[in-house]
Design a protein around this nucleic acid. Structure first.
Lengths: 201, 201
DNA sequence: GTCTATACGCTGATAGAC
DNA sequence: GTCTATCAGCGTATAGAC
């Protein structure tokens, strides 16, 4: 993955994400992207070799961050700390990239693309395992599926558009923890609860 | 909405849903549908006037059922009964049409189509109002958004494919109620008792 | 970096034979 | 109900000038 950051390149990625969120990847043509930028298709092709290239470049930052979240969680010793770390990491990711996480979760083109990459399937499996633990019962499996659906898909929900990041983060985390039967976090940063302090922003 | 039921028509709808779930509506061509059926595009066009027609016919049963769920819920007097009714109704719908509800919730083409129809926007608003009540606080709004995302999107989750309908229904309903801070239903014991469970409602 | 111009396959859709 | 044949338009992608 080449990730030089040119201004034109970043502009393409921004409008691509916006259009992917509105029309889906398959429903977004290079013509639409070019029109939105006020340039021609050829100008877009100067920045990216193919449409698939654009898709990967759009989602890469979130996948990278998700990888770091998994690593940070797995570095914890106790399972409850691992779970807390992955939840707060995913919530941070969702809040800071609302549309992007929703697109990644829901778009069929992106799902198909990711399914073809063993490294990404493995990443999903790692996150899963941290959430459910080894050998989960049915209730745990269903809870985990619901939490991941709920967190990743809410980013697109228009009813939450008006909420600022900090408010959304607090509620998402609280509700996700309740869904998974974790004890509520204290209101402000506590001494006794590890979770947020250790990993860099 | 015309809804004559011919065998060929139903066959088209079945493979269309399957392909919509896998590739999205925009990613599914009439050629793909025809190929999957072993016929030509023209044969498909004999059953439906346009691709959009197929989409509406595919999602109509779920929308009709959702309308009935809203009506049944609104007929209840107490708010807690209304909420319970809408939750169990939506869970039934999700379980009996797993892929379909997920497609309706996540596909951008379908979202856009529905957004253009005032009747459907109104339906969504009614469901919303039953879930949150009038004048909800922020926590309630976020919970409602998470519940609806979680319930509607889990239908596509491959990790739940192996679960039979009754098991899935019981867990989804229990978890959804916990997420919304409703008391657990009498039938399932808190703590998740293994072994046999009560019969359906 | 952006443009014009072009290649060519596939799209949704129609007409008319069987 | 299904077929063959056909259409205009748009899709991704490329070549080469400025």
């Amino acid at each position: 993955m080449s990730r030089r950051a040119g201004a034109a390149r970043e502009r393409v990625l921004a409008v691509a994400l916006k259009l992917f969120a509105r029309h889906g990847v398959a429903g977004t043509s290079l013509q639409m992207i070019a029109d939105e930028l006020g340039v021609t298709k050829a100008a877009v092709y100067h920045q990216f070799q193919s449409k698939e290239d654009i898709v990967w470049a759009v989602i890469a930052p979130a996948l990278d961050e998700l990888t770091r979240v998994a690593e940070a969680a797995e570095a914890r010793k106790r399972r409850s700390d691992q779970l807390g770390a992955v939840l707060s990491g995913v919530v941070d990711l969702v809040v800071s990239h609302r549309r992007l996480t929703a697109v990644i979760r829901t778009d069929p083109t992106i799902s198909a693309l990711m399914r073809e990459r063993p490294a990404l399937r493995a990443l999903e499996a790692r996150i899963d395992r941290v959430i459910t633990g080894p050998d989960p019962d049915t209730e745990t499996v269903v809870s985990a599926a619901m939490v991941s659906s709920a967190l990743l898909a809410v980013g697109m929900d228009p009813r939450l558009d008006g909420l600022d990041d900090e408010t959304l983060r607090r509620h998402l985390l609280g509700i996700a923890r309740r869904l998974l039967r974790l004890r509520p976090l204290p209101r402000s940063r506590p001494g006794g609860v590890p979770g947020r302090d250790a990993h860099p922003a």
